[in-house]
Design a protein around this nucleic acid. Structure first.
Length: 819
DNA sequence: CTACTAGAATTCTAGACAGCATGTC
DNA sequence: CTAGAATTCTAGTAG
């Protein structure tokens, strides 16, 4: 089928596709057209990666727009949002406009409403629905990319509920779901009332095989000799083999999947022996430049190690890297400059980074819940293998699993090569998921009664595939109890069907996109500042499930029997809850650490891993600074939550260090994290503190002064500075480093910048004239020009004595009069 | 006394969404 | 109840 023969698309689109080189639709695309994607039919396309799924989505969206509609494209990752946007922007010449909305990158709401295609993450869509984005009910077509992720226990339920809501708001909505090949695509199609297109067809052949001994055995029966001498590294030989096999005059790149960050780093270092000697002089030069760029991103060991490897044509890729690191590596790999990337699963599901040869070195990964090394899901391995074969560059792709004995080889064939991906299963009926979504569903008016709620939930994948009717209702009831006890919903049990309504604070929590348990924890923590009450009602255990306050061992899977009491109501043994605190027993002061610890122990923050020795170290810190921690410290010996408390304390200290201007490399070393982790933690904490500020204002019984403390703690995280630099760091182009230097030179505030001796400013900024001029301009100085000014060299030395310069010297003067 | 190495003991473990208002060194 | 690879430590040996 030729693109130009398609009907229903904007005029010229078919021809444009042919001009792009799409002479014929791929078979799955043709099947999709036959199933009616261009006529507004809903469709589930379960086809391999890189077999033209995106075009199916484009056909659906473009035809929908041609009929006067509006399309939404839901992606699983923020990084994919920009990738898709760039892809869709080629339709702008046909007057099809594209907008993006993610937590990172947001076009403003009104502008978004005028776009024809909107790309967003599932969480963002959920949030937009909660906040009543006006264009939601104008949608005529929604595409859900990688729908098989509904299987993910953490994020899957959001996608599931969001799709259900979109379809509820908009009954005629065309739903196009793109999925990897999974065991039960028919069930997904059933759920979405959609046609099903299922296919294994790929535009580039994929050979999957297992290497053991001296050869790779492929699934088609063929063999490739890759001898490995004793003591030689299997992976290295396979990478070398791919590089030495020229197609199109170039050797093939490899992608090595390993099971931990450390392995990724050490693998990259080792493979440097393979890639380095095969580089051309020109490549070396370009790689050296790239390495410099990488070093410039961050001055941590991680960054340094990456740069060292990259100079030799090898790289590693994992979530500890800063996002700039990641895209530098991805781009250089796509440009064939980097010959081999050793990666954790970040690269299996992320942006498009194909390689000639994919090597799945580790097929088991540590899983604490499982209690050991757990074999990867078939789906995950298939996704990794699917990265093999670069369209237009490779005649075929090769995916190789590694075995170190004959038995393992057979097992790998059985388990992965021949196996079908497992069926997708909804994870909705779990407390953490329902806690959030039940509240949001009630708060945004999708249900006003318990029956209404259950019937809404009946539109989810969970309902279509469960055989246990009662479970969802049972968990829902548990969650409703929790939400009621914490004051997020009100229940009216008088009528025939129990009435449900979100309270004011419940609405706020829903709109802020907080896990209700996070909100409860934060509110409780902030309240202790005022009245030192007892703990929250039901507290998070390691999984974010909640357990009854009076029975920490309650089985969360058996929700029927837990009961809850309002905080402080009947806990006679707790002396703290008896009567008001005596006059001498002043409320504890709020410190940044207290707040950082508070948000870090919330289920919305990932826990840092406690290494050996950390337990002792942080137990000590915990006792030293117990007065600062908000809420009651669990007992070291009796309470299972103590471990989590310490992990949160570790995170809290990391944040405190950041706000105390500790260098990035120091923090990375001290906490055993990468630059990407630091940014991630700081971001999350910033977000939660902002939410905390809103909550604190919205709710009674929290001191206004506390709100100010929360804001300051947040701002200090935002800029990564101590209190006295807040004003300076707010000036554009002034970060934590420059602010500190200016301050040491006696320039302590924005006002000082406007008045100060230019020579001093220039000296503090180490003679960078352009930078200094920009900063002066940004600070609002009338005459920012630095022509003919010589830097004052004494200003670059730490001159604390110069602090008596003109200006008020109060670095935080502007803090209170905001908002 | 140092350098080296084999084997034992120990260590450590993937990923990443959201709000809000504008810009690090 | 359950793992395994990489790194570090240690003891033994050679130089």
């Amino acid at each position: 089928m030729e693109p130009s023969s398609l009907s229903g698309l904007p005029a010229g689109v078919g021809e444009a596709l042919e001009a792009e080189g799409v002479a014929e639709l791929y078979p799955p695309q043709e099947a999709a057209v036959e199933a009616g994607v261009t006529d507004g039919e809903s469709l589930v396309a379960a086809v391999p990666t890189a077999s033209g799924k995106t075009l199916i989505a484009e056909l659906a969206m473009l035809s929908s727009i041609e009929r006067g509609g509006k399309a939404l494209y839901i992606v699983p990752l923020r990084a994919l949002a920009s990738e898709k946007k760039a892809e869709f922007e080629r339709w702008e010449e046909f007057d099809v406009t594209v907008g993006v909305s993610t937590g990172n990158y947001d076009s403003d709401g009104e502008w978004l409403a005028s776009r024809d295609i909107i790309v967003a993450t599932s969480e963002k869509v959920d949030s937009l629905i909660r906040n009543g984005a006006p264009w939601i009910d104008d949608l005529t077509c929604v595409v859900s990319d990688e729908v098989h992720l509904v299987d993910d226990s953490h994020r899957g339920p959001t996608l599931e509920v969001t799709l259900a809501k979109l379809r509820k708001v908009n009954p005629g909505l065309q739903t196009v779901a793109l999925s990897a090949t999974v065991g039960n695509a028919d069930v997904i199609a059933d759920w979405l009332d959609a046609e099903l297109v299922e296919s294994d067809w790929r535009p580039i052949e994929l050979h999957t095989g297992v290497h053991f001994g001296n050869a790779i055995n492929f699934d088609d029966g063929s063999q490739r000799e890759v001898p490995v001498e004793r003591g030689e590294d299997q992976t290295a030989r396979l990478v070398a083999d791919a590089l030495d096999t020229e197609e199109d005059g170039q050797g093939g790149s490899s992608l090595v999947f390993v099971n931990s960050r450390r392995n990724a780093e050490s693998s990259a270092r080792k493979l440097t022996d393979v890639t380095g000697p095969r580089l051309t002089g020109d490549e070396r030069d370009r790689l050296r430049e790239l390495a410099e760029e990488i070093r410039g991103v961050s001055d941590t060991d991680t960054s340094e190690d990456l740069a060292d490897a990259v100079e030799e044509g090898s790289a590693f890729h994992h979530a500890g890297l800063a996002s700039e690191h990641r895209s530098l590596v991805e781009d250089a790999f796509r440009d064939r400059l980097i010959k081999c990337v050793s990666a954790t699963p970040t690269l299996a599901a992320g942006v498009n980074t194909p390689a000639r040869r994919v090597i799945v070195r580790d097929w088991r990964r540590y899983d604490g819940e499982f209690g050991g090394m757990k074999p990867l899901d078939v789906l995950e391995v298939h996704q990794m293998c699917g990265r093999a074969g670069r369209p237009g560059l490779d005649p075929y792709g090769e995916a190789v699993l590694l075995a170190n004995n004959a038995d393992t080889r057979e097992e790998l064939f059985e388990r992965y090569v021949w196996a079908e991906a497992e069926p997708v299963r909804s994870k909705l009926a779990a407390e953490p998921a329902l806690r959030t979504h039940v509240l949001a569903t009630v708060a945004s008016g999708f249900a006003a009664t318990r029956d209404g709620l259950l019937s809404f939930l009946d539109n989810t994948l969970y309902a279509t595939q469960t055989d246990d009717e009662g479970r969802l209702a049972a968990v829902t009831d548990t969650v409703l109890d929790y939400l009621e006890v914490n004051g997020f919903v009100e229940r009216d049990r008088d009528g025939g069907s129990e009435g449900l309504a979100a309270t004011g604070i419940g609405h706020t929590v829903s709109r802020l996109y907080l896990d209700p348990m996070s909100a409860a924890e934060i509110l409780d923590g902030l309240r202790t500042v005022a009245d030192d009450g007892s703990g929250p009602v039901g507290s998070a255990d390691a999984d974010g499930e909640f357990v009854a306050a009076d029975d920490p061992t309650a089985d969360a899977d058996d929700p029927g029997f837990t009961t809850y009491t309002r905080a402080g109501e009947d806990e006679p043994d707790d002396p703290a809850s008896e009567g008001p605190a005596s006059a001498g027993d002043a409320a504890p002061a709020v410190t940044p650490l207290g707040l950082y610890h508070l948000v870090s122990r919330t289920p919305d923050t990932y826990e840092l891993y406690l290494k050996s020795g950390d337990r002792e170290e942080y137990t000590e810190v915990c006792y030293e600074r117990e007065a600062e921690l908000l809420g009651d410290t669990p007992s070291e010996y009796e309470d299972v939550r103590f471990e989590d408390w310490l992990a949160a304390l570790k995170t809290g200290r990391l944040l405190e260090d950041w706000a105390n201007e500790v260098d990035e490399d120091r923090i990375a070393e001290r906490y055993g994290v990468g630059p990407g982790d630091i940014r991630g933690k700081v971001d999350t904490a910033e977000w939660l503190l902002r939410a905390a500020e809103t909550l604190a204002r919205d709710v009674e019984g929290i001191d206004g002064d506390t709100v100010v403390q929360v804001r300051e703690a947040r701002k200090r995280l935002e800029y990564g500075v101590r209190e006295e630099l807040l004003d300076l760091a707010g000036v554009r182009n002034v970060g934590r480093k420059r602010a500190r230097r200016l301050y040491e030179a006696g320039i302590e505030s924005r006002a000082d910048l406007r008045e100060a001796d230019k020579a001093v400013v220039l000296g503090a900024l180490r003679g960078r004239e352009r930078t200094a001029e920009r900063i002066l301009e940004n600070a609002g100085r009338e005459d920012p020009s630095l022509d003919g000014v010589d830097p004052d060299s004494s200003a670059s030395a730490a001159a604390t004595a110069g602090a008596d310069a003109d200006g008020d010297g109060d670095g935080q003067a502007s803090l209170g009069d905001f908002g």
